[in-house]
Design a protein around this nucleic acid. Structure first.
Lengths: 145, 145
DNA sequence: TAGGCTTGGTCTACATTCTAGACCAGGAGA
DNA sequence: TCTCCTGGTCTAGAATGTAGACCAAGCCTA
């Protein structure tokens, strides 16, 4: 039951368990774990969405805003800055009038697409199960007779 | 440059671009996208960490707290409830004194481990590049001469 | 020439979410 | 009796996110 799986990857269990052990093994402060920092960033509600939008082609500032209607300009600016700082996207200003700014994925940003696609696929496939679980849980909550 | 890659998966680009097009194609309200809801949950700072801890073996409430020292009880309770509601973990109460509660991954929760391991691997591998990009960006910011 | 539109943002006020830590009941051990 | 353990709940304050007004510069229209 250990070792390799049908897809030739080491078991996800072992992979994660091993990593966690390494992280927790004394010398390492889990609180400062850089992977956590990265995962936090990826999880901050807009980041993945913006990356997915830019995966199609480079976009201009307002174009992204139109593709993601419910993001505020402030969060769009901030998320783009953070992504730029992390080397995931490039920002190019064109001297048009009014000046336009184009954002696109860097090589590093592109490399994120593959694991991200896995996760999105998982989310799509699991969505029905999650919805079912939620209904069941909520039903049990509201009528715990 | 399209189609299949060395790993026999469709290109992540196409995969995500295609999905986004489907999502954005009129009939579908991106704001209500269920995948977004799931990704938001996964990104909420503690969820992935707890899943990784439980990937090793079932844990009791305080055990998780000890494994993740900087989580508050409130967030631990809340995140566990959310995970339970989504059918990712089970909660079992043992009638010991004082009663102990054990949390463990469900099959659905386990199925998340694989995409999650991909992402963690990516984060670990990319961490040096991200750190470099950050320093470069910050250096350019502070001395933009 | 005035008015309104676009660009990529910034700023402020308010709402939501997170954190730190006190508190709880009930039993066990000293 | 006094303290500690369990798995939580509750509250206050801090951090974070949202909505939307505002900005300068240039273009188009009337």
């Amino acid at each position: 039951m250990t070792g390799l799986r049908a897809n030739n990857l080491p078991s996800a269990h072992e992979c994660l368990a091993q990593r966690f052990k390494t992280w927790s093994s004394g010398e390492f402060d889990l609180t400062l774990c850089p992977v956590r920092g990265i995962l936090d960033r990826l999880g901050d509600k807009w980041t993945t969405l913006i990356v997915i939008v830019l995966a199609q082609r480079p976009h201009r500032f307002s174009e992204i805003g139109r593709a993601i209607p419910d993001i505020s300009k402030r969060m769009l600016t901030q998320t783009l800055r953070d992504l730029e700082r992390d080397g995931m996207i490039t920002r190019r200003v064109f001297p048009t009038k009014p000046p336009s700014v184009e954002y696109g994925l860097t090589e590093l940003g592109e490399s994120l697409l593959e694991p991200l696609a896995h996760l999105v696929t998982w989310a799509e496939n699991s969505q029905p199960k999650i919805a079912t679980a939620r209904s069941a849980f909520d039903a049990a909550e509201t009528s715990p007779s």
